[in-house]
Design a protein around this nucleic acid. Structure first.
Length: 419
RNA sequence: GCGAACUUGGCGAAGUGGUUAACGCUCCGGAUUGUGGCUCCGGCAUUCGUGGGUUCGAUUCCCAUAGUUCGCCCCA
């Protein structure tokens, strides 16, 4: 009997675990500059949390959630995204009770039942931020710029910021009516998915890739014609501030996003250039004015985004952006008999207390396998302990790089290691 | 949910309806029992994802199933 991991999941070990943690730590550091604090919510929630926020016209809720009934007949769902849970936590714990803007980040696995393919898994890791408290275009800009700075810090350059506004509540209401009227006349020319979208949420039709370049879609009413003056001004202020900050962007009217809670600003960072990952979104987010209210909280807007960590890792791999992530061993201790083996354990732990990375072999008393270990560890020094060394207290230490060998006391070795 | 390709040792990878399934890397042993990395010699798949069928005979052909990869949809 042999076991294998569930379809669409990944094991991380060796190089791959070092890479994903490298990315996570980089992002954590950037985000801390902005005063964000980590928020850790459960990996599962009551199903309603996602249905009410992500929206029942979204594919995520309709067909991609890992939902199950627990032993007390509760409907439970493994989180498919991070925002809903953070918003729920914010409201439930009344984190809005003090007036300042709240800035949170989260990091962890998300679950969606989808067909796996390039950059898409059933369990995947997201790093996201959420900001609650003010409705200011400059807050949206700050959020977008923080993502931009993350990419800079990671060395990722071949990305494009796509941004759009889908209007405030009033704009969206007017627009939805207009779209509904328009598509009613062209129902026959739409793909079958779009026919469903027409019923539930006609704005979704604009995100269709099948009909993207069709006459019907190109001639459809545009959200910009239905934006309230407030929405227009809000969006223009964001664009203007991005200009001032010299953040390149591209407005994209077809960008509507697949989660229902967004209002006004939506954006994506997609991979550009000629790699095979072209067009893949590695960060996406937007503003959500109604979400906190929808969870029974006060009328407080939020804005945020999420990175796909696995996607960032694959972009960085394609562009050779990872530094050498080997956990370098400082010293491998070779011991040639049982008493020396015991001595090597003692010395190893003394050196570890001083902060050095020490490895040793536990069973061999001959040179060859122990030297092999030293080679595999790519260590800087090899220390040899045998009967002679034990008696004299003078150990043999080899400098692997310079191929030199010295006979030194413990204290002299420590001194040498510090250099 | 739809479509395509793929699945051979620890890894990469050739190959064929018929006695011992190439090769490379890794690994193991030896030359070299207090000095490794180089070199040389030797070893490492009763078996070709799993189940079934066709056949005298299947890793090779057919069907099913699982998985992987990729595309569509959608998304991080």
């Amino acid at each position: 009997m042999s076991y294998q991991k569930v379809k669409g999941t990944l094991d991380f070990y060796g190089e791959s675990s070092r890479k994903i943690r490298y990315v996570e730590n980089k992002v954590r550091n950037i985000v801390k500059n902005y005063g964000f604090e980590e928020i850790i919510t459960p990996i599962f929630e009551h199903t309603e949390v996602f249905v009410r926020s992500v929206g029942d016209s979204s594919d995520i809720v309709n067909k991609e959630m890992y939902t199950f009934t627990d032993k007390s007949d509760r409907s439970i769902t493994l989180r498919p995204e991070g925002t809903a849970a953070v918003a729920r936590c914010f409201v439930e714990n009344k984190l809005y009770s003090t007036p300042e803007v709240k800035k949170y980040f989260y990091c962890g696995p998300m679950f969606r039942y989808e067909r796996p393919q390039a950059g898409r898994y059933r369990q995947f890791n997201q790093f996201g931020i959420e900001v609650f408290g003010d409705s200011s275009p400059f807050l949206d800009t700050e959020v977008i710029v923080s993502a931009y700075r993350v990419f800079k810090a990671l060395g990722i350059e071949n990305i494009k910021l796509k941004i759009n506004t889908i209007g405030d509540f009033k704009s969206r209401q007017d627009y939805a009516i207009a779209l509904h009227d328009y598509f009613e006349k062209h129902l026959d020319s739409l793909c079958s998915d779009c026919k469903n979208r027409y019923e539930k949420n006609p704005m979704r039709i604009l995100d269709c890739k099948v009909d993207r370049n069709s006459e019907v879609l190109l001639n459809a009413p545009k959200i910009k014609d239905f934006l309230t003056d407030e929405s227009k001004e809000y969006f223009n202020k964001i664009l203007k501030s991005l200009d001032v900050l010299k953040i390149p962007y591209e407005t994209d009217e077809s960008l509507v996003r697949g989660l229902d809670y967004y209002t006004d600003t939506v954006f994506e960072f997609v991979i550009s250039g000629n790699s095979e990952l072209n067009g893949l979104a590695i960060c996406a987010g937007g503003k959500y004015a109604e979400l906190i209210k929808g969870f029974g909280g006060p009328d407080i807007p939020g804005v945020g985004y999420a990175f796909g960590l696995e996607r960032i890792v694959s972009v960085m791999e394609k562009n050779s952006l990872f530094p050498n992530l080997v956990n370098a061993v400082d010293v491998v201790i070779i011991s040639l008999d049982e008493d020396s083996k015991i001595e090597s354990l003692k010395i190893a732990n003394e050196l570890r207390d001083l902060g050095f990375n020490i490895d040793l072999d536990y069973k061999n008393f001959s040179f060859k396998p122990q030297f092999k270990l030293a080679d595999r560890d790519k260590c800087k020094y090899i220390m040899i302990i045998g009967e002679e060394e034990r008696k004299s207290g003078i150990y043999t230490i080899k400098d692997v790089l310079n191929k030199t060998e010295d006979k030194l006391s413990y204290d002299e070795i420590v001194k040498k290691l510090y250099n």
